[in-house]
Write a protein that binds this DNA or RNA. Structure first.
Lengths: 141, 141
DNA sequence: CTGCTTGCAAAGGCTTTGCAGAACA
DNA sequence: TGTTCTGCAAAGCCTTTGCAAGCAG
């Protein structure tokens, strides 16, 4: 197995508190992995990575925690595959390539894509977010 | 129950053949509903509508057929809700509002949204489609 | 202490599959 | 007639839930 990429507990605790999330053992474990670098992980991947060294966090808690982090703005849910949700640790406005062959999610560099002519939203509604996904596949050669 | 909106069998058969799909009883039933008007339906909704008057098509066949229609370009899959796939009968390039409160999918009129600065795709890949979803919610007043 | 969290296992919802019988060309 | 399609039920996968025990402040 590779070395786990993590950041310090105290840094994670700080981030959790700032987001209004009680820092528990498990949330810190998960945060150490998530916040280590920009990445796109499914719940299952998080579960495996966290417990690589032994059973630290249960499946239910991983799901609960990722949902909580998403609601608190610590991560972003990306829905591109009907079979599972990806959690993006990059919470700034940006969009994705989705490699259909590999199931991999790839960031589109920030200044590339821009939207023109934002449409008027339906009466009484506000925008909660804009998702742009460019589905790509390997060229059949 | 409301009247079913459908189109003529012969029209559906024509469309199926044009798409290279063998027109069977069940595919025609499903096509009559789908192709009647622009709409966004989940597999479950299609199942219920088709069988409104009696058991015409089984669940497995609805799933198979929708998947087939999507592969053949007769409908477009829209993935916005992790719990289910929507099938869009409007196959032309267009984007969506997703009303988070109601789970409803709404077309954005074609000439509104435009993308600027299409990024370069990763080496050896081609774009299979671009999905844009603006998630909207009711304003908490 | 007191409420929020966790973990386990079971349940849940959507979708796919295996296989026998039926329909299509 | 040979292949493709359908239907049923069961299985599969990801995710949520119920509830008792454990941790945070």
């Amino acid at each position: 197995m590779d070395d786990l990429q993590t950041i310090s507990k105290s840094l994670v605790i700080e981030q959790l508190k700032k987001a209004g999330v009680t820092p528990t053992q498990q949330r810190i474990e998960i945060g150490q992995i998530l916040f280590a670098k920009p990445q796109h992980l499914s719940a299952d991947q998080v579960l495996n990575i966290v417990n690589q060294a032994g059973p630290l966090v249960s499946k239910a808690t991983v799901y609960n925690t990722l949902g909580l982090f998403a609601r608190k703005g610590l991560v972003k849910e990306v829905i591109v595959d009907p079979s599972k949700v990806f959690y993006d640790t990059n919470t700034s406005e940006h969009y994705h390539f989705y490699a259909m062959d590999s199931g991999e999610l790839i960031d589109i560099e920030g200044d590339h894509l821009r939207i023109e002519n934002m449409p008027t939203l339906p009466e009484g509604t506000e925008a909660a977010g804009i998702d742009i996904v460019i589905r790509i596949r390997n060229i059949a050669s």
